[in-house]
Simulated scan of single mutants.
Amino acid sequence: MASSTSSPAPHSRSKKPLGKMADWFRQALSKKPTKTPVSPESPPGDVSQPSSSNSPPPVGPSSEASPSPPPTHMGADGSSSGSSSGSSSGRWSKDYDVCVCHSEEDLAAAQELVSYLEGSAASLRCFLQLRDATPGGAIVSELCQALSSSHCRVLLITPGFLRDPWCKYQMLQALSEAPGAEGRTIPLMSGLSRDAYPAELRYMYFVDGRGPDGGFRQVKEAVVRYLQTLS
Rank of each mutant, 00 (worst) to 15 (best):
L29R: 14
M74F: 11
E105D: 10
M21I: 07
V223H: 01
F216R: 14
T185N: 10
P43R: 01
A199F: 14
T229F: 01
S89N: 14
G90R: 03
R202T: 05
G90W: 08
S30D: 13
V223P: 03
M171C: 04
T229E: 12
A174V: 00
L172V: 06
R210I: 06
G180E: 07
S6C: 06
S52T: 11
S51E: 08
L147A: 10
A138H: 14
P70T: 07
N54S: 12
S7A: 13
V47P: 02
D132E: 06
P70N: 09
L188I: 01
E64Y: 11
S80A: 15
A76G: 08
A196K: 06
V140P: 04
L175R: 15
A76M: 12
F216K: 15
L156Q: 03
M74H: 05
V223D: 00
V47G: 03
S30M: 14
A174I: 02
K16V: 13
V223A: 04
P67R: 11
A181W: 04
Y96M: 06
S68P: 05
C126G: 08
S89C: 07
G82W: 03
L162Q: 06
C101V: 05
R13I: 06
S66A: 14
M189R: 08
T5L: 15
A178G: 05
V38I: 15
L128K: 02
C144L: 13
E41I: 12
E105L: 02
A2R: 13
T5A: 15
S148N: 12
K20Y: 07
L18V: 15
R153T: 15
S231H: 13
E41D: 14
A138T: 13
S85F: 09
L192W: 02
T229K: 12
